[in-house]
Amino acid sequence: MATEHSRTAARLMVSPAVILLFLWMIVPLGMTIYFSFLRYNLLMPGMESWTGFDNYYYFLVQPAFGAALLNTLLLVGGVLLITVIGGILLALLLDQPFKGQGIVRVMVIAPFFVMPTVSALVWKNMFMNPVNGMFAHIAKTFGFQPFDFLSHAPLASIIVIVAWSWLPFATLILLTALQSLDREQMEAAEMDGASWLNRFIYLTLPHLTRSITVVVLIQTIFLLSVFAEILVTTNGGPGTASTNLPYLVYQQSLLNYDVGGGSAGGIIAVILANIVAFFLMRMIGKNLES
């Protein structure tokens, strides 16, 4: 019974958890905002002074910022495109009955359990390395010049590496959605004269929209903050060719010792992420309503 009394008690009992979670978020955010208005350099500790919006100004006008912003969007968009399309295709394939289905499904999930740093190193040294890498060996077998992926196509290479580890996630969610598709609906469509392609367009895809939305929203959150893959493969380079916003913030605060500038960058990244989230929810959020 939800009496006035029990409601007060309930609020009291959840409050420790709520307060803890709130502090967990608000303290770092508050400190970052505070630092972003300070002239705070790690080489001169104890010399902090108030600078107003200077940190923001200098972070925004540096040429690397525009490049990082574009790279962030390309990285998120590229990985989403590969994982959603590839995920649908893989899910359709895994949904077919075949021998050893269970084992194959477990193996498909495996990349998701490999840590970003490890997967990036494996890709860098064992696949994309122009001397020892698998791709170099394959190229040489066919008489081609090995391609140095990480220096000539750094962003595309990172997109591939990140997409590789996120593809299982998309596949898994889309596969479960496919399995919940009503078989009688498919049969009804078959009797109605719909070809395989028409059944896919008119039945399967509409059925998958909600899951695709979930995949896009969850992945966007994580892809906006890709960092480890860049740090261990290209270090953001050559130049700023593979620098994204989180990496730029790291560069500013820890490589340039400029905590104030880095904090300003962090706050800018938070604002941009919210803008992206706003547009994303406007575009596809209605798919989540039943």
Partner: peptide, 21 residues
Amino acid sequence: AAPAERRLAMVFQSYALYPHM
């Protein structure tokens, strides 16, 4: 013959309506 070529129409137990149309 494929189901569509037989010119038969079927009403299913679950009705099998297309939910998003």
